[in-house]
Each structure stands twice: as C-alpha cells, then as structure tokens.
Amino acid sequence: MQITIAYDEDRSIPVPVLPVAERATWAEQTAAAFAARVGGGDQLRQGVASALDRLTALADDDSRLLLLIGADGAMLAPLLLFVVPHELDEREQADFLWQPSALLPPTPTVITTTHLGTGFSSGLAQREDGADFSTRRWLFFGSGMTVAALLGPVAPLGLGLVEAIADALLAESWVEGFVPREDVAKAQRLDALASPAQEGWRLGAASGGATAG
C-alpha cells in the first residue's frame, strides 16, 4: 500500500529498505549531506549517522520510517507510519494508544489533517526494564482501514522537541485508497477515556501492543 510522506528535509530523513551491506555507507553519506545542508558540525553528523544506521535494520516495505531531528540535533527520534487493513475496534485502539508500562495518564490531542482526516493522538510517559522514555501515538480512522503512527521512544524531556515535526509531517501525508471517516465523536470518546478520572484504557488494554493486521 502506497504511503506518501510530506516532510521537511531539514528536520526529517526517510529511512529506505536497504541490503545489510549498504546500510552503514548510506547512513554515513546521508548524515554528512544532512549536516552540510543545515550547517551542522561533526557531532550532528555522527549522531545522525549512528541513528540512521540503527534504524535501517527496522525499515520494511509495509511501513514508512523516518528519523526526526529536533533542536539542531539535540533530539533524534524515529517516526513509524503504517496502515492496518481494517477498522480497529475499541479494544485494539486502546491496545495501541495505551501501554501497561505508562507511568501517568496519557496526554490526549484531537488533530485534523488534510488527507487523513480527524485523528486522535496519545502521549505516554513510560518505564520498561528500569528505563524511562516517552512516546506519542496517532490513529486516523478510515473506511475499511486505519492509519497509525508511533513517535519514539525518546528521552522523557525530549518528546516536545520533535512532536511538532511529526504533527506537521502527518498533517500533509496521505495513504493510497484511504478515505477518512470524519467521526469526530470517536476522537472525542477516546479523548474522554484518556481523562485521569477514567479507567477505561487501563481496563481495556491489559494485553498491550498494537494490532497491526
């Protein structure tokens, strides 16, 4: 399924699917070109190259993976965009938007995009294996399919440095065959479930993890 990403090349780098033997060279060359374009030094180049090298092992043909670069390289974060070939039920939505490792209630946002319609986003502060990190997750509701995105993991205080980059990217990206369901009520219901006064996600997401079809 064709996923077309509209991105700012000075703040985002798409990660292609590459043979293992080509990954390190591509990462070094791409990082060098990026640093030169934005006027960054060796520290930025090395940091971007290292992150890209790691992400090439995660890229596949069924999703789109990007490295987001915030605050002149002070924060680097992966953004994964993928399509679920069915409409998620409430349990599946909760399994993706809420994780058992979350330390606090999610930070919810209802968002509107040009091509993906109205979506819902959930920010989580998490702890796994003694490590603290943050993620942000998006769902966009379509006829017969769902578009999902995952930003992070990033350092707990670093999410705010890359969220705006992801929001701008998602605002103009599109998926072939995706017809948005302008179901504002669904987004509002998710927003209500995310309230600290509610326990709906905790009860509904005990299994953890996303259902990706």
Rank of each mutant, 00 (worst) to 15 (best):
residue 50 S to T: 14
residue 61 D to N: 10
residue 43 Q to K: 15
residue 37 R to W: 03
residue 201 W to V: 02
residue 203 L to E: 09
residue 158 G to P: 08
residue 108 P to S: 05
residue 47 G to T: 03
residue 87 E to P: 08
residue 55 L to M: 06
residue 24 A to T: 09
residue 80 L to N: 04
residue 10 D to K: 14
residue 180 P to E: 01
residue 111 I to P: 08
residue 185 A to Q: 12
residue 127 R to D: 11
residue 135 T to S: 09
residue 4 T to F: 11
residue 21 A to H: 12
residue 105 P to A: 04
residue 199 E to Y: 13
residue 174 W to G: 08
residue 74 A to M: 11
residue 67 L to M: 01
residue 209 G to W: 07
residue 44 L to P: 02
residue 96 F to C: 08
residue 33 A to K: 10
residue 103 L to W: 05
residue 183 D to R: 04
residue 152 G to L: 00
residue 208 G to Q: 14
residue 177 G to Q: 03
residue 5 I to A: 01
residue 140 F to K: 06
residue 13 I to P: 05
residue 74 A to R: 12
residue 196 P to V: 06
residue 13 I to T: 07
residue 50 S to Q: 14
residue 117 G to S: 02
residue 90 E to A: 14
residue 68 L to I: 02
residue 125 A to N: 13
residue 165 I to F: 06
residue 127 R to H: 13
residue 13 I to R: 06
residue 154 V to F: 07
residue 20 V to W: 08
residue 21 A to G: 09
residue 198 Q to T: 15
residue 186 K to S: 06
residue 90 E to F: 07
residue 179 V to T: 15
residue 115 H to P: 00
residue 10 D to H: 15
residue 149 A to Y: 03
residue 207 S to D: 11
residue 182 E to Q: 15
residue 194 A to Y: 00
residue 137 R to I: 04
residue 145 M to R: 14
residue 111 I to N: 14
residue 179 V to Q: 14
residue 76 L to N: 08
residue 165 I to M: 00
residue 33 A to P: 00
residue 165 I to Y: 05
residue 96 F to M: 10
residue 209 G to N: 11
residue 83 V to Y: 01
residue 161 L to E: 11
residue 188 Q to L: 14
residue 142 G to V: 00
residue 39 G to A: 06
